[in-house]
C-alpha cells in the first residue's frame, strides 16, 4: 500500500454534510482557496497551511470567521459544525481518520443544527440606570421563545451587562426573530443598549472534543 504524504497541512474551518466543494474565499494564513476533504457523507472544509500552529492574529481570527460566514451563506449547505480556531491537521489522512471515527456523532450533530443559525444578544444598562434585571430577562425570554429553537446563557462579565445569550434560530424564523429583537429595543431603548450579532455558526450549541487515548 502506498501512503501519499501531503506537502501541506490542512487548516480546518468546519464539518458539513457531503458534497465536494470549492470556494474562492480568503482563509487563514493567506490562503485563497477553500476546499473539502471528504469521508463518505461528511466533508471538512479546509485550506492549505504550512504550520501546525497558526498565529492568533486579528487577521487570522477574522479569516476563520469569514470563511464560516461564507460556508453558511451557501444555500446548499444546511449546517456546519464549526471548528475551534487553530485546528490544523498534518495531512488528509488523520483528518479522514477523525471524520471516520466520529462520523456518527458529527452526522447527528449536523442533523440537530440543520437549517439554523446562532444569533447573539447582549443587553447593557445605560450608565447610571437601574433596571429590574429579572423582569427584563424573563420578558426577553418570553418574547424570543416562540421564534427560537434554544437559548444559552453566556457570562455576565460586566456589572452593566443585564443579559448575554445566544439563540439558535431557524433560518426561516429570522425575520420574526429580528422583529422580536426590534420589539425589545423599542421597549427598553431608554435604559438598555441592545447588542445584536449574527448570524453565527452555532458555536454555543455544539461542543465536541475528539481526543486520543494514549
Amino acid at each position: 500500500m502506498t501512503v501519499i504524504m501531503a506537502d501541506e497541512h490542512l487548516y480546518t474551518y468546519g464539518v458539513i454534510d457531503g458534497a465536494d466543494r470549492e470556494l474562492a474565499v480568503d482563509g487563514v494564513a493567506g490562503a485563497t482557496r477553500l476546499y473539502t476533504v471528504e469521508y463518505r457523507t461528511l466533508s471538512a472544509v479546509v485550506s492549505d497551511i504550512d504550520t501546525l500552529e497558526p498565529e492568533q492574529t486579528d487577521e487570522n481570527l477574522r479569516a476563520h470567521d469569514e470563511a464560516l460566514q461564507t460556508i453558511m451563506s451557501d444555500e446548499d449547505i444546511e449546517a456546519v459544525v464549526p471548528m475551534r480556531f487553530g485546528m490544523v491537521f498534518k495531512s488528509a489522512r488523520p483528518l479522514k481518520n477523525v471524520l471516520r471515527g466520529s462520523r456518527s456523532v458529527l452526522t447527528r450533530t449536523l442533523n440537530d443544527i440543520e437549517g439554523t443559525v446562532e444569533m447573539g444578544l447582549k443587553l447593557v444598562a445605560e450608565e447610571g440606570v437601574t433596571v429590574d434585571r429579572e423582569s427584563v430577562r424573563e420578558d426577553v425570554s418570553g418574547r424570543l421563545r416562540g421564534v427560537s429553537v434554544e437559548e444559552t446563557e453566556n457570562g455576565l462579565f460586566s456589572d452593566r451587562l443585564v443579559l448575554n445569550r445566544s439563540y439558535l434560530v431557524e433560518r426561516d424564523d429570522r425575520e420574526a426573530f429580528d422583529a422580536a429583537i426590534a420589539g425589545i429595543e423599542d421597549e427598553y431603548g431608554g435604559s438598555l443598549i441592545t447588542q445584536y450579532t449574527g448570524p453565527w455558526a452555532p458555536y454555543n450549541f455544539v461542543d465536541l472534543e475528539i481526543g486520543v487515548d494514549r
Binding site: 501512503v3 480546518t12 501546525l52 464549526p82 490544523v88 498534518k90 489522512r93 454555543n204 481526543g211 486520543v212
Partner: peptide
C-alpha cells in the same frame, strides 16, 4: 464577539489525532 466564539467554542480535535499518521 468573534474571539468569544472561535477561541473558546467549537469542535476541538486533540493534536495527536491531528498529526497521527496511519
Amino acid at each position: 464577539e468573534i474571539v468569544d466564539r472561535i477561541l473558546d467554542k467549537g469542535l476541538v480535535v486533540d493534536v495527536w489525532a491531528r498529526v497521527s499518521v496511519v
